[in-house]
Structure formats: structure tokens, C-alpha cells
Write a protein that binds this DNA or RNA. Structure first.
Lengths: 217, 217
DNA sequence: TTCGGAGAGATAACGCTGTTGTGCTTTGAT
DNA sequence: ATCAAAGCACAACAGCGTTATCTCTCCGAA
């Protein structure tokens, strides 16, 4: 065994501790709290830990971003499928909304910062869940014949637009909620769904996620 | 006259020089170039200039943000009204899109940074132009009876969502362009406009702004 | 069992940032 | 002419990410 000698083996727990501390600091105190010295003191190590377990602050933030997508993915898993695929889409959108408002700083990292090196694939798998949901609605004949991916992209861009306008304080919470319902309804109609039926699906979704939404205040 | 004595009157030209230099540096080198020392050397003054003409870096960036809205407003003025209000709306959206992709860093300052103190009104007047455009479409009977403001908000959130996803490199330029047309069409249909007629309006708008769009590469 | 070397990790330093304090200089009203 | 207030430059301070240096500790080979 010539290679892979391991004197003073690295402690993998420090790595996850750094990521979790970073996510916590990000949530509690915002991006300005994410400094090497602060993180080091939180974990009980020196600033060098950031460089032994990551390439630097960039890679640590990338890891935090990945952690954010994992959490969001877990939240998406909780959206159970019903026999109304359009209501399920609305519920997925609500989950997106809740996740963003619960962890606004994390959302910023995930969806609003330009990628530095080449890792665009780290969170796009969550988008595939949306594509699958749109495909279900297409298969059920709720939407006019079209490709699922472009439709999913339109829904994503819509939810993202409302969320980011709210995070930038250009929309109040109430305005964002209202716009979210209105725009989903109009998009569903534009997709070819019957207006009355789409409205019913939206109402169903709203009652399903009423609890979590109320919890976010 | 006990108050308002004025020894060594301030030079207002330094103030606008700072703003213009900041806007230029932001466009050419990105946000990281916006430092007090860099700005001072660009203008030929010391770093104190930032504090004599502004409260600090925060207020200077706020002024840059205002400058961005002024430029965007001037761009909006160039969108002349035709007899097709829906096509005019699409043209307004295209102007929004062009402005964002031409000055991505400035767009970030204007629409993606949370407001620090209370100045939410600094650029919202551009939104009123969109509201007026929607009202024209309503008056022309192109949209189903509704209030102009919520509809305008939906259009804004949509354009903003697509732009920001592109700025975050989550959508390619081609995907953003395609999504922009698709989503506008579906929203217009959801608003109550006839699909064929909305499609024609979109085509008209596209030909009207084809030159500028091609110029952005 | 001993010993060499490689990785972990602390300390300090470098260059950068925004901001503040300290003076000197200029200026305009009295 | 005088005087005070504001402009303005220089330097310093605390913070940042990053890097260099140095020690220490542990693992594997002899």
C-alpha cells in the first residue's frame, strides 16, 4: 500500500460540523455571519479547518448549498400524491414557497448566487420532481398536449419570481401569497386546464398545506 | 441667520461622479470593484469623499440603485404605444428583459438585494408603467374583467423569475428567451385573451424589439 | 520497538475591506 | 480681517479570506 497512507487521519465529523454550523449561522444571523473565524470558533477549531476540509470558503458555501437542496428535497418528499395531479402541483409549489420563506438566506445561496465553477447539477434533481408532476397532469389530460419540461420551467420561474420579489422586500407576504394563487390559476388555465376545475385543485392544495403555511407566520 | 452657514461649500459634481463611476465599475467589473478606495482613485479623491457626500457605502449603493431605475425608466419610455395593447405589454417585458441582461449587476442591485432602511419607493414608479399598460389592455377588452394591479404583478413576477434564474445560471439564454415567450402567452390566455390573438401580439412585439435583442448577443 | 515522515492544526502575517479619528486647509459669512 | 465650519488627506482600527510557518501527533515500515 504505497498510496493512501493516513497519518493523523482527518476527522470527517469536523466536516459535517462545519456544514451544519454554517447552515445554522446562515439561518440565524444571515450571510455576514459566515466567516472563517466565526465558523472556527463555533466548531472549536482554528480557521485552518476550512482549508483542510474544504478548498476554501467557496467550497464550504457550495457544500452548504448542497445541504440546502437535500433539505428541500426531503420537504418535497412529504408532498404525497393524490388523484388530482394539478392539486399536487400546487402543493409542490406551496412546499417550494414554505421552504424559501423558512430559510430565506439558504434560498439565496441555492437559487440567487451565480455558480462559480462548474456544478450546475447539484440541485437540479429537485426540478425533475416538478417535471414528473407536470407529466402526471399531462397524462391525466388536464393540460393541453405539450412537453412537460417547458411547462415545469414556467411554473418554476413563476414561483421563483414571487419568492425573490418577496425576499427583496418588493412584495409583502400577503401580496406574495395572493400572487402565488392567482398566477398558478392563470398558468393552469393557459396550459389548457378548465378554469373552474383548476380553481378547485388550488383550493384543495391550499387546505392540504394550510397548517405548514400558518406555522411560518 | 444662526443656522445654515456654509463655509467650504461641497462640490455637487463629485457626488454624481461617484455615482457614475460606481455604475460604470459595477457594469465593467462587477460588485467586487465597488470599494471605497477604488472609487476614490477613480474619481481622484480620497476615501473620505464617500463619507462627505454619502452616509457611507450603503447610501452610495442606494444612489446607484436609483440611477439604475432612472436608466430603466428611460428605456421604458422608448417603448411606443401601438393599437395593440397586449403587444405593447410584451414589448415592455422585452425592454425589462433587455435591461436586465445588459446590466446584470445593476439589476441585482435594483431587484435582488434586500432594502436596508426604508426606501421601497425609489423604483416602484417603473411598475406603475406596467400597471398602466395592463389597464389599457383591460380597457380594450382583451383581458377578462379584473384589477390591473394584480395582473401587472403577475407579469412582473414572471419576468423577474426568468431573469433571475438566468442570472443565477440556472437557465441558459435560449431557455430564458423561450420561457419568456411561452409564459407570457399562457398568462395572456389565462387573463382571458384569445390564444390566437395573444400569439399574434407576441409575434408583433418580437419583431419590434428584434434589433435590440440581437444586440445583446 | 523505534523512527521517519506526512497530515492536522494553531499562530501569525499579508493584503484587502468599510469605517473612524486626527489634523490641516479652504472658504464664506460676519 | 476674523473665525468657525466643512472639505479633505493620511493614518489607524477591526474585520475579512487566504497563506506561510511551525509544531505535534499519529501511522506504517523497518
Amino acid at each position: 500500500m504505497l498510496s493512501n497512507v493516513s497519518p493523523k487521519a482527518p476527522d470527517p465529523s469536523v466536516r459535517v460540523k462545519l456544514i451544519e454550523a454554517a447552515a445554522r449561522l446562515l439561518a440565524e444571523e444571515g450571510p455576514s455571519a459566515l466567516s472563517t473565524r466565526r465558523l472556527a470558533s463555533e466548531v472549536g477549531a482554528s480557521t485552518m479547518a476550512v482549508y483542510t476540509y474544504f478548498r476554501g470558503m467557496d467550497e464550504l458555501q457550495h457544500a452548504v448549498r448542497k445541504e440546502g437542496f437535500d433539505r428541500f428535497g426531503r420537504l418535497l418528499e412529504e408532498v404525497r400524491e393524490t388523484d388530482d395531479p394539478v392539486a399536487d402541483l400546487a402543493a409542490q409549489g406551496a412546499a417550494y414557497f414554505i421552504n424559501a420563506l423558512t430559510n430565506p438566506h439558504l434560498y439565496r445561496f441555492m437559487f440567487m448566487e451565480p455558480l462559480l465553477d462548474g456544478d450546475p447539477e447539484v440541485g437540479l434533481w429537485t426540478f425533475e420532481k416538478l417535471v414528473a408532476g407536470v407529466q402526471r397532469a399531462l397524462d391525466a389530460g388536464r393540460f393541453a398536449a405539450a412537453e412537460a419540461r417547458p411547462l415545469a420551467m414556467q411554473l418554476w420561474a413563476t414561483a421563483h419570481g414571487i419568492v425573490t420579489l418577496h425576499l427583496a422586500q418588493l412584495l409583502t407576504f400577503e401580496e406574495a401569497i395572493a400572487a402565488f394563487g392567482d398566477i398558478a390559476l392563470n398558468l393552469f388555465v393557459g396550459f389548457g386546464d378548465d378554469r373552474a376545475r383548476a380553481l378547485r385543485s388550488l383550493d384543495d392544495a391550499q387546505t392540504r398545506v394550510a397548517g405548514p403555511v400558518a406555522a411560518t407566520g
